[in-house]
Design a protein around this nucleic acid. Structure first.
Lengths: 165, 165
DNA sequence: TAAGATTGAGGTATCAATCTTG
DNA sequence: CAAGATTGATACCTCAATCTTA
């Protein structure tokens, strides 16, 4: 007999787990596609990728205004990190902080006309890029499967009420 | 008539594109699941998440040795960034640089016994964590779909020969 | 007391330039 | 000259502490 407990998996058994392979695949695919999208986007926007995410979130909000902390969560940033990101974007004239009418603690990040134009220009590059690197790679059925799977994973890992859509 | 060319989509039309929604969902799901996995893993490993990825890649390689630059690509790092990451992990005794027999330019990152033990301990936490946050959230069919979709996306966005498995 | 927002400190990834070897 | 690896400069994100207002 060996020293190994037959019920305790060895390192070799642990590392070859299908669940590790699956999640690694998700990380690699996301990273490679993001790199391709970022490379394309550089042609339509002279700003970092994170700035585009902020512009996009503001553009998808009816009034073009979102409270700082809420916007930070939407673009997957810490509160403190987003303050500095907003500083840089405000210095560039892409957004403005506007006092929140109902709550004097809060300020609303608001898209400026220049920010709107930058977003529009970026989207005219980014949407075809998404088509090329994501949508056209999958058929309609696979796209529907992907959306369904990602909704389940996101819902399972997020506190309730984190996402609206 | 308006000034808008009917063939040119407006900003409002561009931002509501299904492809943007779909990719945003992928990013959010990946981020939320990663946060949950990282939180769990902290109980089994006193090191940053990136260190675990390195240990895992080495553990999945038969000899436990991989050339620095190749390993950098495997864990989605730049070459320069990985040099410093390896410095920190080597200082902690988790890996060793070993001269490459056939090529004196190259050095092989090699798992030490301490690194092996750290990986094993981390995996005993991480595999159940993956089961909880990924595998058990999906049924067998969805897991197969996810693997298939991610392989297609990864292959489409990567230069040929980037991945073996 | 809690929530929104900001600041400074600390850590670390990327990039470009450089050195060495094939 | 190309490839593997390293270094210094730069950028910027996270975290904890702090300030203001609800």
């Amino acid at each position: 007999v060996t020293q190994t407990d037959p019920m305790t998996p060895s390192l070799e058994q642990l590392v070859d787990d299908d669940r590790i392979t699956l999640w690694g695949l998700v990380l690699e695919a996301q990273h490679q596609v993001s790199a391709a999208l970022r490379s394309d986007l550089a042609d339509g926007m002279p700003y970092p990728e994170a700035w585009f995410e902020v512009l996009l979130r503001l553009g998808r909000t009816p009034g073009g205004s979102v409270p700082m902390t809420k916007l930070a969560r939407m673009v997957l940033f810490s509160s403190g990190g987003f303050t500095k990101l907003a500083d840089r974007m405000e210095a560039e004239g892409l957004l403005r902080r506007v006092a929140c009418p109902g709550d004097r603690r809060s300020s609303l990040a608001t898209l400026t006309p220049k920010g709107r134009r930058a977003l529009e220009k970026a989207l005219r590059v980014h949407v075809p890029s998404l088509e090329r690197h994501v949508a056209s790679v999958l058929d309609a059925s696979e796209r529907a499967q992907l959306e369904h799977i990602m909704r389940k994973l996101r819902a399972s890992a997020s506190p309730p009420g984190t996402y609206d859509d």
